[in-house]
Amino acid sequence: MSPRSTPILFLHGSWHGAWCWTEVIAHLVPYDRPTLAVDMAGHGLRARRPECLSMRPFDPDALATEVSPVAEVDLDQAAELLISQIEGLGRGAPVTVLAHSMGGAVLTRAAQQVPELVAHAVYLAAIMPGSGKAADGYFALPENADALVLPALRGDSGVTGALRLDLASNDPAYRQRLREAFYGDVAPVVADAALGLLTPDAPVSMMRGTTRLTRDGWGSVPRTYVVCTRDMAIRPALQRVLIAEADAAFPENPTSVVTLESAHAPFLSVPGDVAEIVGKLG
């Protein structure tokens, strides 16, 4: 299969869904590449919402303590689903996979397990964990200290089993914080529409899983990292840490780095640029 015809699969990050790639896929039409956007385990149409969000009157204590209906979704399940989605799109041939944010950890596990099915791994402002390292450990690093997502979380993830957003909140300051965290350079009306499509719970178990990386597994797959320089969810300094770790572990297969002047959601703010980056890859 030629690079021009290699299919492209898009995997979103936490709280998002396949819907977030609509504009990017539209811009890929001139590249004549088969494309597919999928829902990650526990997200999109596979998400389940906690009952507390629809209770009336609203109970803030329940928001903070109700166990998430997706609490048991872990990295194993997420990677198994992604591999099946890759197999379905490629029908046995390799596929270029672009993952955003937390989707990067799922892509890393899948590429380690079936490197022959991943033609190119593209990380868009994504967690690209090192060998044996959990995704959640990176968010506490000093390089991510001023990120805006953790302050927006509600409840105790140790109790709920999820990183929970209060998407039903009518607090203008809180909603503005969410916009700044995810959609800082997106038109306000589009950002509000995107907030309305998010799912409230991101499974913690998925973020605590680890993958042992090998040279003939993930280390053998060509990879590109797209650094988003205005990102307030995964700060650019942390993105550079991830790249440095990967290159130190597998220097014979260095990361190709591309820079976008964007916040955390370039698929909404500059979809044509994202399409151009991935459209030209094999």
Rank of each mutant, 00 (worst) to 15 (best):
P30W: 01
A105L: 09
P129Y: 00
T96K: 06
H120P: 14
L89A: 05
R46V: 03
V122M: 07
L117R: 15
L75Q: 03
Y31K: 08
V95A: 10
M40I: 00
Q77K: 11
P50W: 07
S84Q: 12
P57Q: 13
A71V: 02
V73H: 10
L36K: 13
V38L: 04
V73L: 06
R33C: 08
V122Y: 00
D74S: 03
A37F: 12
V106L: 04
A71F: 00
L124A: 02
Y138V: 08
E72I: 00
S68P: 14
F139A: 14
P50K: 07
P129I: 12
A111L: 08
A119K: 13
A119H: 10
F139S: 15
P34Y: 05
V38P: 01
G92C: 04
I86C: 03
T108S: 13
Y138K: 13
A110C: 04
E51F: 13
L75V: 02
V106K: 07
A121E: 06
R48W: 05
V70Q: 04
A140C: 03
T35N: 07
D76W: 09
P34Q: 04
A79H: 04
Q113P: 00
V114E: 14
P30Y: 00
G130V: 11
F58L: 14
P94K: 09
L98P: 09
G44W: 02
L98D: 06
Q112Y: 10
G103W: 08
A37D: 07
A125E: 11
A140W: 11
H43R: 14
A121L: 09
P30S: 09
T108Y: 01
V73W: 03
I86T: 03
V70N: 12
A78N: 06
E66W: 10
S101N: 11
P50Y: 14
L45G: 14
Y123P: 05
A93T: 10
M128L: 15
A134E: 12
T108M: 09
A110M: 03
T96V: 09
G103E: 09
L36W: 07
A99Q: 05
H120G: 06
P142T: 02
G92R: 13
R33T: 06
G42W: 04
A71T: 01
P142N: 10
L124Y: 01
S68Y: 05
Q113N: 04
A135H: 00
V67K: 15
P57L: 08
V97W: 08
L75F: 01
L81Y: 02
A119T: 11
Q85V: 05
H120N: 15
G130H: 01
F139T: 13
L75K: 00
A105M: 09
E116A: 09
S131D: 07
E72N: 08
M128F: 08
L63S: 06
A78M: 02
D136K: 06
M128G: 07
L141H: 09
M102P: 00
E51K: 09
V95W: 13
L81F: 03
T96H: 04
E51C: 10
V95R: 12
G90Q: 07
R91D: 15
M40G: 15
L98N: 03
L82S: 06
H43S: 15
P57A: 05
